[in-house]
Simulated scan of single mutants.
Amino acid sequence: MSNSQQIYNAVHTLSIEPGYEGQRIDNFLINHLKGVPKSLVYRILRRGEVRVNKGRIKANYRLQVGDQVRVPPVRMADRDEPARVDNRQLERLEKAIIFEDKRLIVLNKPSGIAVHGGSGLSFGVIEALRQLRPDERQLELVHRLDRETSGCLLVAKRRSALRTLHELMRSNGIDKRYIALVRGNWRRDRIEVDAPLLKNTLQGGERIVVVNPRGKESLTRFSIRERIGDFQLIEARLMTGRTHQIRVHAAHLGTPVLGDGKYGDAATNRELRDLGLRRLFLHAETLRFRWPDEKQFQHFRAPLEPALEELLSRIRTSAHANRY
């Protein structure tokens, strides 16, 4: 057995403290047993090896304060040696924080950084934030952004805040607006795409999402912010939260997001690379919601990175010159 692993060779019992109530037992165990494969977590749940108050439970059981959770012996990564994030990345993320209070952190996630580690990545935003805020023991992602997408990302600092924000998301109580750059011209300034999305896997193992009647209901509302020659700066409002939803729906319209190596046009992407586009032009610009115990809405805006602003400026200049 590797020194980087250890075995819990005895049953241990956890008492659920305030702040963890309402969380599903499977998610609680995945967070508690860091380094243990999710498949093993679900296996010990199915076998009844995990007990709550001495009784068998299902994976969707929601914890209550005072619950006694019996956890069987499992092999897991050594939690005393978490992956360390270098200081340069920590400083970058510290500067990206645009709001913080006792319940929430909002940051302008840079493009190219995943929201969490895994799949060959030693760390993501959440691991870095836990290193930046070691005293905040309940930091959790509220939602996700693709690795190449930048913009507003919510991180809860309390379990109670996480539950509230998830409820708001389920009831469309969080207004999320993205901006993207596409090539082409829509006849109308506003377009609603109601097209079900299905996760698929290609032969080479690459995961993609496709429009398919067997997929999950997916709705995106697009509007044009600015027409710039052959290009359009568009706004997308998510009415559902599916993987790659904006990217797939934009491609479904025949106008994929520029810089998209998965769903975009390779020739157009090469042309825009010569103009300075080195990433996906998709940015989570604003978030708006209201806490149930407050009257005022919370509104957050993440500015575009300078490289994207400079690209837009060059395109505007070119379009203006070609007009005369």
Rank of each mutant, 00 (worst) to 15 (best):
I179T: 15
H249K: 04
R273Y: 06
G241T: 00
N212L: 06
L258H: 03
I208D: 02
R221W: 02
L238P: 02
V211I: 09
P256K: 08
A161F: 03
A251W: 01
E217I: 11
R158T: 15
V155G: 07
E285Q: 15
D194N: 14
L197W: 02
N269P: 01
R177M: 08
L275E: 09
R247P: 00
G261A: 04
T243I: 05
G184T: 11
Q245W: 03
I191H: 08
L162S: 09
Q232V: 01
L253R: 07
T240C: 11
V257G: 05
E192I: 11
D274H: 12
K216N: 14
F231T: 01
I228Y: 11
D175Q: 14
S223P: 13
R163M: 13
H244G: 02
S160C: 02
D274Y: 04
T286Y: 08
V210D: 03
R227M: 10
N212M: 03
R158W: 01
L287H: 13
A267I: 03
H249T: 04
R242Q: 02
I234R: 03
V248S: 05
R279E: 05
C152E: 04
T255A: 06
L287W: 04
R247C: 02
R278W: 06
P196W: 07
G259V: 06
T240I: 04
D175G: 04
G151T: 06
R158S: 08
F222M: 14
E206D: 10
L258R: 00
W186A: 08
G205W: 09
W291G: 09
S160N: 10
R273M: 07
L253Y: 00
L198E: 08
A266C: 00
E217R: 15
N212T: 04
L277I: 09
R225L: 15
P196D: 11
R227I: 14
R159C: 04
V257I: 14
R225E: 14
D189T: 11
R183C: 12
S150W: 13
M239H: 12
G173F: 13
V211D: 10
A161P: 02
N185F: 03
R170M: 08
F281L: 11
G264W: 06
G173P: 09
D175M: 05
Q203L: 00
R214C: 13
R290M: 08
R227H: 13
Q245A: 07
L162Q: 13
R279L: 08
L275C: 01
V248K: 05
N212F: 05
R214Q: 15
L272A: 05
R237H: 13
D175A: 12
V248W: 03
R279G: 08
I191R: 14
R163L: 14
